[in-house]
Amino acid sequence: MAKRSANWTADEEIVLVEEVGRRKELLFGKMKGDGSVKIWEILAKGWKEITDVLNARFSLKRREEQEIKKKYYNIKQRNNIIVSGVDEKAPEIKNPENLAKIISNVFTAEMEIPAETVDNLQIYKLFRMGEYDKQRKYPRPICVQFANKSHKDIVMRHIKILKDKQSPIRVSQHQPEEIREKRKHLYDVQKQYADRNIETVLKGQKLIFTQSKSVYRDKIGSRPMADEIISGEEVKIAISTRKTTEDNGNRFVAHSTPVDSYKQVRRSLVEVMRTENTASASHNIYAFRFSTSDGTAHEGSEDDGEHGAGRMLLKALADNDINNALVVVSRWCGSKIGPRRFTHINEVGLSAARNMPVPV
C-alpha cells in the first residue's frame, strides 16, 4: 500500500503559489512552440522546477510532481462558491459589471448578511459559468472567487437562511473537479447496486452499504506506484497500440490488452505502465470491461487527474460493444485544447482496442 503524503503546511502552500506565480506565463500563457521543443516538454520542465524548489525548501516532506499540481488547483478553488438559481436579465447580459450588484443583492436581501459586511467582502473575481444560450432552461451558475477563505466562510454561514426561505437560489462550495468526478463515479456504482436490490447511501466521498455499514472500495485500487512498476512480478501479456495523435503540443498514445478478471486488470495495468515512456505521461487514463463465466458484467475507469476522461472512455467502449478489454490512454500535456482532448482520448483508445489481439 502506498504511503500517505504528509499534510501540507501553510508555508508550503505559500511557496507553491509564489513559485507558480513566477512561472504563470510559462504554465498558463499561450504558447505555440518553435518546432524544436515540444510544448508538453516545456510545461513538464516548469512543474519539475516547482517540485524541486518545494522539496529543497521542505526536505522532510518530499512531494511528487502530480501531488503538487493537484494541490495547486485545489488551493485555487477552495476560496470559491457557486451561486445557482439567479436569473439572467438583459441589463446583466449587456453589461457584465452589473453582476457584482446582483450578487451583492443576493447576499443582503436573500441571505440577510448585513450590508456593511457585504461591502467589506473582498471578491477577487466573479463570472457566469459557461457560454450564454438563450435556449437554456436554467440560468447559468455564478462562480464567486473570494480573496481569502474567511470571507467565503462568512457567506457559507448564511446558506441555511436560503433553505428556511425555500429560496430558488442555492449557494454551495466549489468542489475540486476531482471530488466532483469521484461522486459521479460513486453515483454510477450506487445505481448498479440498486439494480441488484442492494441498498447504499452516499455520504461525502464514501458509498456505504446500508445493511453492513461497510464502505465501498474500488477493486482495482489506485494507479500502480513506481516501486510496483519497477520491482513487481513480471507478467507477459500481449499489448496492442495503434493510433497516436498530437494536438498543440499534446500527445496521446493508447495501449490495450485482453482481461477477464479484476486481478488481470491490475496486473495488466502494471505491464502497460512498463512500456516505453508510459509512466512519464501527465495522465494515464484507463477503462475496462469484462464478463465472468456466470455472465455478470464488470467495468470501471480511472481519470488519473484528467477529470471525466475515464468515464467517457468507458462509455465509448460500451457504445462500441468492446468487452473483455483494458484500454490505457496516455496524455503528455501541451497547451490547452479544451474538450478536444476527450475526442482524442476516445479515438486513440478505440483504435487500440480494435487492434487488440484475440486471446488464444
Score class of each variant (00 low, 15 high):
residue 5 S to R: 05
residue 6 A to F: 08
residue 8 W to D: 08
residue 10 A to K: 15
residue 13 E to G: 04
residue 17 V to M: 14
residue 17 V to R: 15
residue 24 K to F: 11
residue 24 K to T: 14
residue 33 G to S: 12
residue 35 G to W: 14
residue 36 S to D: 12
residue 38 K to N: 07
residue 42 I to K: 13
residue 49 E to V: 03
residue 52 D to S: 07
residue 53 V to E: 11
residue 54 L to S: 06
residue 56 A to I: 04
residue 62 R to L: 04
residue 63 R to M: 05
residue 63 R to N: 03
residue 65 E to T: 12
residue 68 I to Y: 01
residue 70 K to P: 00
residue 73 Y to K: 08
residue 74 N to G: 02
residue 75 I to D: 05
residue 81 I to A: 04
residue 89 K to A: 02
residue 89 K to S: 06
residue 90 A to F: 09
residue 93 I to E: 10
residue 94 K to E: 14
residue 94 K to M: 11
residue 94 K to N: 11
residue 94 K to I: 11
residue 95 N to H: 05
residue 95 N to Y: 02
residue 96 P to F: 01
residue 96 P to I: 01
residue 99 L to R: 06
residue 100 A to M: 07
residue 100 A to L: 06
residue 102 I to E: 04
residue 104 S to P: 00
residue 105 N to H: 05
residue 106 V to E: 02
residue 106 V to M: 02
residue 110 E to R: 04
residue 112 E to K: 12
residue 115 A to K: 15
residue 117 T to D: 13
residue 120 N to L: 12
residue 121 L to T: 15
residue 122 Q to K: 15
residue 123 I to Q: 06
residue 124 Y to A: 13
residue 125 K to P: 00
residue 126 L to Y: 11
residue 128 R to D: 05
residue 130 G to I: 07
residue 131 E to P: 00
residue 131 E to L: 05
residue 132 Y to D: 06
residue 136 R to A: 13
residue 140 R to A: 03
residue 142 I to N: 02
residue 145 Q to Y: 07
residue 145 Q to M: 14
residue 145 Q to P: 01
residue 146 F to V: 11
residue 147 A to I: 10
residue 149 K to H: 13
residue 149 K to N: 12
residue 162 L to G: 05
residue 163 K to V: 00
residue 168 P to L: 00
residue 170 R to E: 10
residue 170 R to H: 04
residue 171 V to W: 00
residue 176 P to Q: 03
residue 179 I to Y: 03
residue 179 I to E: 12
residue 182 K to V: 03
residue 183 R to Y: 00
residue 184 K to N: 14
residue 184 K to A: 12
residue 188 D to M: 08
residue 191 K to Y: 09
residue 192 Q to H: 11
residue 195 D to W: 06
residue 201 V to M: 15
residue 202 L to M: 12
residue 206 K to L: 05
residue 211 Q to S: 13
residue 215 V to C: 06
residue 216 Y to V: 04
residue 216 Y to I: 04
residue 218 D to N: 15
residue 223 R to T: 15
residue 226 A to K: 15
residue 226 A to Y: 10
residue 236 K to Q: 09
residue 240 S to R: 01
residue 249 G to R: 11
residue 249 G to P: 05
residue 249 G to Y: 09
residue 251 R to Q: 13
residue 256 S to Y: 00
residue 260 D to I: 03
residue 262 Y to I: 12
residue 263 K to P: 00
residue 265 V to E: 10
residue 271 E to I: 02
residue 273 M to E: 15
residue 274 R to N: 09
residue 279 A to Q: 15
residue 286 Y to K: 06
residue 288 F to E: 09
residue 292 T to R: 13
residue 292 T to K: 12
residue 293 S to N: 02
residue 298 H to F: 14
residue 298 H to V: 05
residue 304 D to E: 11
residue 307 H to C: 12
residue 312 M to W: 05
residue 313 L to P: 08
residue 317 L to H: 04
residue 320 N to F: 01
residue 321 D to E: 14
residue 321 D to P: 00
residue 323 N to G: 00
residue 323 N to H: 08
residue 324 N to H: 07
residue 326 L to C: 05
residue 328 V to G: 07
residue 329 V to F: 03
residue 329 V to S: 07
residue 334 G to A: 10
residue 340 R to P: 02
residue 340 R to L: 09
residue 341 R to F: 06
residue 342 F to G: 11
residue 343 T to Q: 08
residue 345 I to Q: 04
residue 345 I to H: 03
residue 358 V to R: 09
residue 358 V to M: 04
